[in-house]
Design a protein around this nucleic acid. Structure first.
Length: 955
RNA sequence: GCAGGAAUGGCGGAACUGGUAUACGCGUCAGAUUUAGAAUCUGAAUUUUGAGAGUUCGAAUCUCUCUUCCUGUACCA
C-alpha cells in the first residue's frame, strides 16, 4: 500500500474538525498551557510558505504539550482592520468588510490544509463588532483612569476627583500634561463642568491634545513613529511631514519605568528586550531652569485674576548637570515656543528666516544632512543659574523639538555637537575638566571626568559632582534630578475608515464616553472611503453618525442639536488597538457581557508561549504590554505581563530567478555565459520561480507562455540549458518568487511541508526557501510508512522488541524531548530520520516500538501519525496519547570506542570496557601496536585519560 | 556613531557543560533496477570551522585583535 498523503490528510483534517479534537476547555484537572501565534492580517495575496513557519513551530509545541498531559489553549484569529482593505475600497468601492471576509476565507482554507491544531471555536477578528465592542470598552477604561505615581498604578478618575474636591491638585502626584495649573479644593469646586472636564482630560490615560503628528499627505493619515522608516511611511514610502492636530493620545509614558522593569521577569529574546529598552530610552539627569535676561511676560492667574510679571524661563534636560559651569551658550530647537518671544528686534529677521527654512526641510532631509552646522543667534541672553554670567541663546536644528524640552544647555567642552557648534560660530569653549586637552575635540568620557573651574564642584569626579550639583540645584530651587524617557505618548487617532470607531461624542467641545450597555458603536456606512474635501477623516462622509443621548443610538447627522444629539468622533483607532488585548479574548472569546470572564482569565492567566516576528518589537509588543499592565492595575487581569515566553521566528526568504537580457534585444543569456558581455549590456529580469527546476534550469517553453514579452524570446544556452541566476530576497509578488503552501501540500503533503519548514534550520534564523530540498523529508515519510507495511499489506509484529530496537527508540525519545523543550525543531527532524533509518536497517516492525515512535513524530507530522495510529487499532486520536517515557537503561553501554589522540589529533579508535580503570586503560593503550607506530620510539610526556570520553597522548 | 547577532563542504545545516568536526538532508558522481520518464536501492567524494594571536594535554566552542555580513536605532542633550 502506497503512502497517499492527499487522501490521508484530507481524512484527518475532516476528522479533527468534526470531532472538535482541539477544542480547549476552560475547566480541567490538567495543568494549563497557552500557546499563541501572532494573528495574521488577512491580506489579499494569501499565505506564502514563509507565513506558516511560526505557526508550525507553535503547533508542534502545542501538540507536544497535549501529549505531555496539558490542557492546551491554541487559538487563532485575524487582525482584520488595516490599510490594504481600505485602499482597495478607495480604488474599487468594495466595502473593506467584504474584502476582509473574502481574504479570511482564503487564509482559513490555506491554514486548514496544513493541519494546525487550532481551537477555531475561539476565533477572534478585530473588525467584528462583537470584538471591537471590547476594544472600545477598554478605551473607555483608559479614559476613566489616571496614573497615580504615589501608588504607582492607574486608578479610577473618581479617586482623582475626590482629591481635587478635598485638597485641590497641589498634592496630587500624577503623570499628566506638563502645563497644569495649580488649584485649591475651593477653586476646583467652583469651576464650571466644562473647565473641570478640561482639567481632568490632562490627567486621563487617554486624552485629547494638540500634538505635532507625523502627517502623511499621500495616505491622508497620521502615522506612529514606528510606522515611519527613514523619514518616509513604512507602507508605500510616502513623505511624512510634521503637522499640529487634535488627536487622541495614550499616556504610555506613565508606564515607561514599569515597561522597562517588566522585561526582567519575562523570557523574551535578549535582542528584543534590547530594542524595547532602547526605545523606552531611559536617561538619568536633571532639569535645569535658566532665566532669560530682561524679558518679562504677564501671567493671568486663574486664581486671583491679577496680572503678575515673570521672566521667561528656558527649561533644559541634561544628563550632565555636573558640567553646568561649562555652559557657554544655549540652543533652542527652531520650533521652540520661546523663540518668537525672546528674539530681539535686531535678530528677528535672521531668526525668522532660519525658522522658516528649517520648517520646510522634511524630517528626512534633516536626518540625511547631519554634518552641516547651522544656527542663528536670537540676541537674547540667559542667566547662568550658578555663576550669574550672561549666556547667549541660539537656535539650531541639531536640537530636536521632540526630545526632552527642545532646548539644551550647551557645554562645548563636554559634548561634541555643542563643541562643533561653538567652533563653527566662534563661541567660547571653557574647559571645566581637570587635565584634559580640548583643543581638538570635546571630552565626553564621563567616567574619567574630574571637574575643574566650577566653584563648589572643583576636584569632584563625575558621580560625586552629579549628586552635589543636583542637591544644590534643588536647594536653590532652579533644578531637580530627573529621569527622562525617550518613549513618547502614543498617538491613538487615525484618519481612516477601516478601524475601530471611538465610543465618543462631543458635547460643548468636550469628549463624552458612550456607556458600556450601548456598545458597540458600529462603524457607519460611507459613500467614499477617502478623507472629505475639507480635510476631515473618512467618517466625515458618513450621513448617519451622530449620537442621540435620549435613545442611545447612532442617528442621522441632521438631528444634531447639541442638546440631546451630538456629533460623534470622526477618527478611528490605530491598528494596534485590537491587537493589544486579543490574547485575553481567546480565553473567553464569545463572552457577551465582559471582555473576558474573571474565571477564564484566572484559569489561563497569560500566554505561556508566544511566537511571532521581531518586527513588532516597538509596536504591538510594547503596546500590548502597556495595556496588559493597565488592565492589571484595574484588577481585570491577574498578571501584568501577558506573555511569559516569546520566540521570534525568522523569516523565510524567497529565491528569485533571474534571466539576463541583452539590452535592446529579446535574447537571453544563460548565467554561465553572461560574463561574455559587459555589465551594462545586460538587463536582469526576474521570472516566475515555478519555471525553474531543482538545478536552476529554466523551462524555456514555460517562459514563452508565461508573459507575452517572452513569447518570441531567443536564448543563448550553455550545454543546451538555460541556467538562471538566483537571488535571495523577501517573498513578494513583484519578484515572482512566492511559493504557495497549497502547491506544496498538493504535491508533497502538509506533513512534508511541516517537517521541511522545521528542517530548514533554526527557528529564529532567516533562511531562503528552496523547494528542491523537500524531497528529503518526503522520502523520509515514505520510509516511515514502509516500516508499517510489508509490500501492499499493513504488517506489524507483536513480540518483544530487540535491544537494538529499544536503544534506537529511547535514544530518539531523549533527543526529541530535549529538542522540543529547546525549540530546536530542525535537529529533531534529523533525529527522526536517523531513527527510521536505523529501524529500517534493523528490519523492525515491532508494534510496541512503532507505536511510541508515532507519538514522537505526531506533533511534526500529525496526519500520517493519526493514520498509522488508527491502523494499529486505536480508536481515539493520537493527539492525547501519553508522550513516551524515556528509560536510560536501554542506552547503557559496557564498552566505549575510545578515540586515541596524539597531541590532540585523533589517530585511531580502540574499543575498551567502560569500567576499566585509568591505569589499565593507559597500559592497554600504550601496549597497542598503533600507539607505538604513532610514537615512533618517543616516550610520551603525558597521557590524558578522560574515562568515557577520550584518550590523548602528548609527546 | 551606538546596541545586538552571525561567519563551519557546492548548498541548508549538526556538534551537549572545551573531548572522534561536518550528523541529517539537498545537490554531484558511480553502480543496480526500468522501454522511457519517474521512483527505488547501493556506494563514493568534498572541508580543517572568516583571518590572526592567546589560554589548554585538547578550541568550531573560552579570551583578545581584525575583516565581512545581518538586524535594530540615532544630532536623545
Amino acid at each position: 500500500m502506497q503512502y497517499n498523503h492527499q487522501e490521508i490528510e484530507k481524512k484527518w483534517q475532516e476528522y479533527w474538525a468534526k470531532n472538535q479534537t482541539f477544542k480547549a476547555s476552560n475547566t480541567s484537572d490538567k495543568p494549563k498551557y497557552y500557546v499563541l501565534d501572532m494573528f495574521p492580517y488577512p491580506s489579499g495575496a494569501g499565505l506564502h510558505v514563509g507565513h506558516p513557519l511560526g505557526y508550525i513551530a507553535s503547533d508542534i509545541y502545542a501538540r507536544y504539550k497535549r501529549h505531555k498531559g496539558f490542557n492546551v489553549l491554541h487559538p487563532q484569529g485575524y487582525d482584520s482592520f488595516g490599510l490594504p482593505a481600505e485602499q482597495y475600497a478607495i480604488q474599487t468601492g468594495q466595502h473593506p468588510a467584504i474584502t476582509t471576509e473574502t481574504n479570511i476565507k482564503t487564509y482559513r482554507g490555506q491554514l486548514d490544509k496544513i493541519g494546525f491544531s487550532f481551537d477555531w471555536s475561539r476565533e477572534v477578528r478585530t473588525s467584528n463588532p462583537e470584538y471591537y465592542k471590547w476594544t472600545q470598552w477598554i478605551f473607555i477604561q483608559l479614559f476613566n483612569s489616571w496614573y497615580n505615581k504615589d501608588s504607582d498604578k492607574a486608578e479610577d478618575v473618581s479617586t482623582l476627583v475626590a482629591k481635587f474636591e478635598a485638597e485641590g491638585n497641589a498634592t496630587v502626584n500624577a503623570v499628566c500634561d506638563e502645563d497644569i495649573i495649580t488649584f485649591t479644593a475651593d477653586e476646583w469646586n467652583g469651576f464650571s463642568s466644562t473647565k473641570q472636564q478640561e482639567i481632568l482630560l490632562q490627567y486621563r490615560l487617554t486624552f485629547l491634545s494638540d500634538t505635532e503628528v507625523n502627517w502623511c499627505p499621500a495616505l491622508g493619515t497620521v502615522l506612529a513613529n514606528d510606522e515611519i522608516v527613514n523619514g518616509v511611511s513604512e507602507r508605500g514610502s510616502h513623505p511624512v511631514i510634521r503637522k499640529k492636530m487634535t488627536q487622541w493620545s495614550m499616556r504610555i509614558s506613565a508606564y515607561a519605568q514599569r515597561l522597562l522593569d517588566g522585561l526582567n521577569g519575562i523570557d523574551w529574546p535578549q535582542p528584543l528586550k534590547d530594542i524595547q529598552t532602547n526605545w523606552i530610552g531611559r536617561s538619568q539627569g536633571a532639569m535645569v531652569s535658566f532665566e532669560v535676561q530682561s524679558t518679562k511676560y504677564k501671567v493671568e492667574s486663574d486664581v486671583t485674576s491679577s496680572a503678575v510679571e515673570k521672566p521667561y524661563k528656558i527649561d533644559v534636560f541634561t544628563t550632565r548637570p555636573d558640567t553646568i559651569y561649562g555652559v557657554s551658550f544655549m540652543t533652542l530647537a527652531p520650533e521652540h515656543e520661546l523663540v518668537a518671544k525672546i528674539t530681539t528686534d535686531a535678530q528677528r529677521e535672521a531668526v525668522e528666516t532660519y525658522v522658516e527654512a528649517t520648517a520646510k526641510r522634511s524630517e528626512r532631509d534633516r536626518m540625511a544632512d547631519v554634518k552641516t552646522i547651522s544656527g542663528v543667534f536670537t540676541g537674547a541672553y540667559a542667566i547662568h543659574p550658578f555663576s550669574g554670567k550672561q549666556v547667549p541663546i541660539w537656535i539650531g536644528d541639531y536640537v530636536l523639538a521632540s526630545y526632552g524640552t527642545g532646548a539644551v544647555m550647551a557645554v562645548p567642552c563636554g559634548d561634541q555637537r555643542d563643541y562643533d557648534f561653538a567652533k563653527h560660530f566662534d563661541l567660547e569653549i571653557p574647559n571645566i575638566f581637570e587635565g584634559v586637552d580640548i583643543s581638538e575635540e570635546a571630552f565626553a568620557d564621563k567616567e574619567k571626568s574630574v571637574i575643574a573651574n566650577s566653584d563648589f564642584l572643583n576636584g569632584l569626579p563625575y558621580k560625586k559632582a552629579m549628586k552635589t550639583v543636583i542637591y544644590e540645584m534643588e536647594q536653590r530651587g532652579f533644578g531637580y534630578g530627573k529621569i527622562n524617557y525617550r518613549l513618547r505618548d502614543a498617538v491613538f487617532s487615525r484618519q481612516r475608515y477601516w478601524g475601530e470607531p471611538f465610543p465618543v461624542y462631543y458635547k460643548d467641545g468636550m469628549p463624552q464616553m458612550i456607556e458600556k450597555q450601548h456598545l458597540p458603536v458600529v462603524l457607519p456606512e460611507v459613500e467614499k472611503y477617502l478623507p472629505t474635501e475639507d480635510g476631515k477623516p473618512p467618517l466625515g462622509n458618513a450621513e448617519v453618525w451622530a449620537w442621540d443621548t435620549t435613545t442611545n443610538t447612532v442617528v442621522s447627522n441632521d438631528k444634531v442639536d447639541n442638546e440631546t444629539v451630538f456629533p460623534l468622533e470622526l477618527n478611528t483607532m490605530p491598528g494596534w488597538a485590537g491587537s493589544s488585548w486579543y490574547f485575553n479574548r481567546y480565553m473567553d472569546a464569545t463572552n457577551d457581557g465582559d471582555f473576558v470572564s474573571a474565571a477564564a482569565v484566572e484559569y489561563w492567566k497569560e500566554v505561556d508561549l508566544y511566537i511571532g516576528g521581531s518586527e513588532h518589537a516597538t509596536g504591538h509588543l510594547l503596546y500590548a504590554r502597556f495595556w496588559q499592565k493597565f488592565l492589571f492595575d484595574l484588577g481585570l487581569v491577574p498578571v501584568d505581563e501577558f506573555a511569559k515566553k516569546l520566540i521570534n521566528q525568522g523569516m523565510i526568504l524567497g529565491t528569485s530567478a533571474i534571466v539576463y537580457r541583452i539590452a535592446g534585444t529579446n535574447k537571453y543569456v544563460s548565467l554561465g555565459l553572461k560574463d561574455n558581455y559587459k555589465a551594462d549590456e545586460l538587463q536582469e529580469l526576474r521570472v516566475d520561480v515555478k519555471l525553474i527546476n531543482s538545478s536552476d534550469e529554466l523551462d524555456l517553453e514555460g517562459l514563452k507562455n508565461w508573459q507575452p514579452q517572452y513569447a518570441d524570446a531567443e536564448f543563448e544556452l550553455e550545454d543546451g540549458k538555460y541556467i538562471v541566476g538566483r537571488e535571495v530576497e523577501k517573498m513578494s509578488k513583484r519578484w515572482f518568487n512566492v511559493v504557495n503552501p497549497d502547491d506544496i501540500c498538493e504535491e508533497y503533503g502538509a506533513d512534508s511541508l511541516r517537517l521541511f519548514e522545521m528542517f530548514l534550520g533554526p527557528l529564529e534564523q532567516f533562511k531562503p526557501w528552496k523547494t528542491s530540498g523537500i524531497s528529503g523529508v518526503y522520502s523520509f515519510l515514505k520510509k516511515l510508512w514502509k516500516l508499517f507495511h510489508n509490500g501492499e499489506n499493513f504488517e506489524v509484529s507483536e513480540g518483544e522488541p530487540t535491544k537494538d530496537n529499544l536503544k534506537t527508540l529511547h535514544k530518539t525519545i531523549k533527543k526529541v524531548e530535549e529538542d522540543i523543550e529547546n525549540f530546536s525543531f530542525n535537529t529533531s527532524v534529523s533525529t527522526f530520520m536517523i531513527a527510521v533509518n536505523e529501524l529500517t536497517a534493523q528490519k523492525c516492525n515491532n508494534k510496541a516500538i512503532l507505536e511510541e515512535l508515532l507519538i514522537l513524530i505526531s506533533p511534526y507530522a500529525p496526519h500520517i501519525a493519526e493514520e498509522l495510529w488508527s491502523k494499529l487499532g486505536h480508536e481515539n486520536s493520537i493527539a492525547f496519547a501519553a508522550f513516551p517515557q524515556f528509560d536510560g537503561k536501554h542506552l547503557v553501554e559496557s564498552e566505549k570506542e575510545y578515540p586515541i589522540s596524539f597531541n590532540g589529533k585523533m589517530r585511531f579508535k580502540l574499543k575498551l570496557p567502560l569500567d576499566m580503570s585509568k591505569e589499565d586503560i593507559e597500559k592497554t593503550v600504550m601496549a597497542h601496536e598503533k600507539t607505538q607506530e604513532q610514537l615512533q620510539g618517543r616516550t610520551p610526556k603525558k597521557v590524558i585519560i578522560v574515562p568515557g570520553k577520550i584518550i590523548n597522548i602528548v609527546g
